[in-house]
Design a binder for these strands. Structure first.
Length: 437
RNA sequence: CGGGGCGUAGCUCAGCCUGGUAGAGCGCUUGCUUUGGGAGCAUGAUGUCGUUGGUUCGAAUCCAGUCGCCCCGACCA
């Protein structure tokens, strides 16, 4: 992509409404714009990142055996009346009437709808277990939206739902999602720690919040410091194997949110206890028959008897992750995108646009990288060098490839690694080889 | 929902107290000079001062209402 043609409205100064780094940087880097309190538009550069985060979530869900579907944002109120949550959910539920005065709502979550779909589609225990998920926009009419996309009213969430015949099966499903979550967040360069959590209105007795430690987090959390260095399940983890050992290991040390914090328990950890702020990026729930019994989600078991299913649900805040990653990875100059979610891998900087030699060199390099399948943002604008350097640092692409007349005269270009600031001079061929490796 | 703050140019903000023809910096236009970390000089354009009403000869400025945004708290799959 040529920057001269790319819609990238960056800001030189900090917008007044933003209070935390991720919000400020997302606005300054031209990734989002606010439409209303807690509601945002995603501009081209921001959307690229959102899609990458979403894709990592998707890949890990698929690996764990979950199947993707897509449910609508608008739901009929009937289902929610049936589950009892139409009243219970309160004013956070955005209620809508259509032209026929039918009651609808903008979904804040999808337990009712997935339950309805599943109960109509499954009749026998032989079709279990099953985990279904979708990645869809949600709306919760928060009393106080804040911190940009960290607590928005409209937000993108991945929600999975598991259906099993008995508790043992449900626990296996829970473990699959638990392991998938560990891997998902790690792939984005985040250290997310599973912590015992309240189940809230969802109910049930087994739940973990996955928390990324960050100064600007909304939750107070406590955990053993060894979580920060604990080994993440590898690429070749088999979801058909018993995952309980991994679950045990990752829940063996103390880790709790403020709600579950008990001083006497925490004190046992002693000097290894970390007390910090955290961002909740995911939560897992096992809630048994809470929905399946009232909503008649049954199958026929081996003995021919009707059995209500054991269910769990598992959420990841995709748009919130966007903010969490920036909170975890930025400096005074701007964002530092982890390679896995960067909007482009390489920022190609032409230090003297309009000059034949640098233009030609850049055009050639740009073509070579594109042909090799590398995502490149080419700053071909007629701007001063300083403007280009600062802009590139701000948007935080992992690699900068700097082409200037001075270097070309010596047959070299410069590669800068955004994360470390390390700069290396090398030949054009070597640079292309390095970036396409 | 309680408490506080703020709405003036695309952005950051001054002006308001003490009413009298709308301002600065950055950005944008045009030209010249510059050109390896947010250039210099010159030039030009840009506003229902959030909105409605009131007071006044006269309101960005004073008063009342209203809408929006932000922060603290409560709340939070």
């Amino acid at each position: 992509m040529r920057l001269s043609k790319y819609f990238l409205p960056t800001l030189k100064e900090n917008p007044a409404e933003a209070q935390i780094p991720s919000h400020t940087l997302m606005l300054r880097a031209g990734m989002i714009r606010q439409s209303a309190s807690g509601i945002y538009s995603w501009l081209p550069l921001g959307l690229r990142v959102l899609r990458k985060i979403e894709q990592i979530v998707r890949e890990e869900q698929d690996k764990a055996g979950a199947q993707e579907l897509l449910m609508p944002t608008i739901q009929p109120a009937d289902l929610w009346i049936e589950s009892g949550r139409h009243d219970a959910y309160g004013p956070e539920l955005l209620r809508i009437k259509d032209r026929h005065s039918r009651d609808l709502l903008y979904g804040p979550t999808n337990e009712e709808m997935i339950t309805d779909i599943f109960r109509n589609g499954v009749k026998s225990y032989k079709e279990l277990p099953s985990i279904l998920y979708h990645i869809q926009w949600k709306f919760r009419d928060e009393v106080r939206p804040r911190f940009g996309v960290m607590r928005g009213r409209e937000f993108l969430m991945k929600d999975s739902y598991s259906f099993d015949l008995d508790y043992e099966g449900a626990k296996r499903s829970y473990n699959k999602m638990f392991v998938a979550y560990l891997r998902t967040f790690a792939r984005m360069g985040l250290k997310a720690i599973p912590m015992r959590a309240e189940t809230g209105p969802i109910g049930g007795d087994l739940s973990h919040e996955f928390i990324v430690l960050a100064e600007t987090g909304e939750s107070q959390v406590y955990c053993h410091k060894d979580y920060l260095t604990m080994e993440i399940p590898s690429d070749d983890v088999s979801y058909e194997d018993d995952l309980e050992p991994i679950f045990e290991k990752w829940t063996s040390l103390y880790a709790a949110t403020e709600d579950k914090y008990v001083k006497e328990e925490a004190d046992v950890v002693g000097n290894d206890l970390i007390s910090a702020r955290g961002i909740e990026v995911g939560q897992t729930f096992y809630f048994g028959k809470k929905y399946s019994e009232p909503m008649n989600v049954n199958v026929t078991d081996k003995e021919g008897k009707k059995v209500a299913l054991e269910m769990g649900s598992y959420g990841i805040g995709v748009s919130r992750l966007f903010g969490a990653i920036i909170e975890a990875s930025h400096d005074d100059s701007g964002i530092i995108w982890p390679d896995s979610v960067a909007p482009f891998k390489v920022g190609l900087i032409n230090l003297k646009s309009g000059s034949d030699d640098t233009d030609k060199a850049c055009d050639d390099i740009y073509a070579a990288l594109i042909n090799a399948g590398v995502e490149v943002l080419y700053d071909d604008r007629k701007e001063r060098a300083g403007v280009k350097f600062n802009n590139m640092d701000l948007i935080g692409l992992p690699w900068q490839l700097v082409i200037g007349p001075r270097g070309l005269a010596n047959g070299v270009v410069e590669i800068k690694r955004r994360a470390t600031g390390e700069k290396t001079e090398m030949s054009i061929e070597a640079a292309i080889a390095k970036l396409t490796a």
